[in-house]
Nucleic acid binder design. Structure first.
Lengths: 238, 238
DNA sequence: AATGGCCACTCGTCCGCACAAGTGGCCGAG
DNA sequence: CTCGGCCACTTGTGCGGACGAGTGGCCATT
C-alpha cells in the first residue's frame, strides 16, 4: 500500500517548463515548443498542456501570442519581495534592552484618528528601539486600544519575546488580515532623536493593523532613519 | 456584414456570476449553483463553466472546496491602489514653466550604477519641477542613456507635452514593462532646495524603468517634500 | 519586382465524456 | 442508540476531437 501522491499532470508540465526556463535551456525571448509538440514529447493531452501554459502565462512566466507561439519571459517577479516595515515590526520580538517604555496614555489626535476613537481616549502605548548591531536603527511605537489590550499582558512592561502578532494570536485569538501604511519623510521628534542619536531625516511610517472584518487592532508609528533604510519595490507597468 | 465581437463564453459566464455577486443575489458565504446546474442554466459545456469558476477563484471572487461546492467571497481587493510615484512621473506631461533643465552630462556614480554603465558615460538629463497650484511640489530628474535618447528629441529642451512614457512609445517604439523603486528619507540637495523653496526633509525616490527584456531604459531621481507627500499602501498579511 | 492568394502552422475556445476523490446524509446491522 | 457502509452529490483532473482565427512563408500571377 503506497501512500505516494503524484501532483496533477498539468502541474508536472508546469514544473518541467519552469525548470527548463530556470536552467537556461529556454532563454527569455525563446519560443517554446508548440502545444502539439509538447503533447507528443510529454505524452499528455492537449487540454493538459494548454492548461499548464495558460497558468504559466497568468503567472507571468511566459507570454502567448495567438498564431505565433508561446515565448519565454523568465521567472516572474513576485512583488512580494517588497519591504513591509510595519509587518516586520509586529513580528519582531522585544528584548529587555530594546523595550523603552510601556504606558497607559491618552491618545494624541493622530493616533485617535488612526484607531477611530475619540481624542484623549486612554490607550496602551509600547515603544521599542530596534538595534542593528550596536547602533539604534529604528523607533517603533505601537498603540493598542484598551478593548484589545485587556487581558493580554500588553499593558505590562514585560518584553514580548515572540512579537505582538504571535502574542495577540495566541492569547486573544486575534488574526491579522491586512495592514495600511502611509510613508512620508520628516524630522525625528525629540524623543526619537534621543533614541536614535541623530537628527537626520527619517522615514515616518504610520500604519494600522486590521482583522478580517476591517476592525482596527493596532496603530503604529515608525521612525526609520533615512541613512539606514530603503524601502524597495518593483511593480509592473500596465 | 456585422462587425460585432462576442466575448468568449467563459468570460460571459464570469461576468454573469460577478454581476450576481455585486447585485447581492449571491451574498458572501453563499454557495454557488453547482457546475452541472450552471451548465444547464447557461447552456454551455462544463469545460466552460469550470474555466470561468477557476478563473474567478484565482482572482479571489469565490472559493472552491472539493466535494462541497463553490462559495462567494465578494469583490476582490485589488491592492493596486498603491501610490507609484515613479510611474506617475513618467506619465505626466512637461510644461514650459515646469521644465527646468535639459543637458548632456557625464553620469554621476549613482546614476551610472542605476543605468548599468561606466561612471562618467555621457547621458541626457532632464529635470522638472512639478507644481501643485502655485507651490513647487516635487523635483523629478530623469537620466536617459544616449542609445535610448538618440533620435527621440529627448535631448532637446522642448517640453514633452505627453510625458516621457508616451513619447518613447510613440517615437522609438519602446515599451515600459516594470519599474524598480527605492525610497528613503534625506535632506534635499542644494538644487532641490532652490526649486522647492524649503530645506525640509524629502522622500528620495531612486528608480529604474525596464523594458520587457529587463533592459534599463531610464533612471529617475525624485525629491518629494515630506510635508506634501504620503505614499500609501495596503497589503494582506499572509 | 510587386502583389495577392493559398496553405501550413500557431494558439483560442468549446464540447462531451470519463473517472478520481472529497463530503455529507440516509439507513440498516449490530 | 451507535457505527459503518452505501450512495448521491460535489469539485478535480484528464482525454480526444472539433472549429475558429492570427501569422508568415511560398508561389503563381500580374
Amino acid at each position: 500500500m503506497s501512500m505516494d501522491f503524484a501532483p496533477p499532470k498539468y502541474a508536472q508540465v508546469m514544473r518541467a517548463i519552469q525548470e527548463r526556463i530556470e536552467s537556461g535551456e529556454y532563454a527569455p525571448g525563446d519560443m517554446l515548443p508548440s502545444e502539439t509538440q509538447l503533447v507528443r514529447e510529454l505524452g499528455v493531452g492537449r487540454t493538459t498542456v494548454v492548461r499548464a501554459l495558460q497558468t504559466l502565462a497568468m503567472q507571468g512566466w511566459i507570454e502567448r501570442e495567438h498564431g505565433r507561439g508561446s515565448f519565454v519571459k523568465g521567472r516572474p517577479e513576485s512583488g512580494a519581495d517588497r519591504v513591509r516595515p510595519s509587518l516586520t515590526a509586529t513580528e519582531q520580538g522585544e528584548s529587555p534592552e530594546s523595550l523603552v517604555e510601556v504606558a497607559r496614555v491618552s491618545a494624541p489626535r493622530y493616533v485617535a484618528k488612526l484607531l477611530g476613537v475619540a481624542e484623549r481616549t486612554p490607550v496602551i502605548m509600547r515603544r521599542r528601539a530596534a538595534r542593528e548591531g550596536d547602533l539604534p536603527s529604528a523607533v517603533e511605537t505601537v498603540w493598542i486600544p484598551l478593548e484589545i489590550a485587556v487581558g493580554s499582558d500588553l499593558d505590562k512592561p514585560e518584553p514580548l519575546r515572540s512579537g505582538i502578532r504571535r502574542h495577540l494570536q495566541a492569547v486573544k485569538h486575534l488574526r491579522f488580515d491586512h495592514i495600511t501604511e502611509r510613508v512620508t519623510a520628516r524630522k525625528p521628534t525629540k524623543d526619537e532623536v534621543e533614541l536614535l542619536g541623530s537628527s537626520n531625516p527619517v522615514l515616518g511610517v504610520l500604519s494600522t493593523v486590521h482583522d478580517p472584518a476591517g476592525t482596527v487592532l493596532l496603530a503604529m508609528s515608525l521612525a526609520l532613519p533615512g541613512s539606514l533604510h530603503e524601502l524597495e519595490d518593483v511593480y509592473k507597468v500596465s
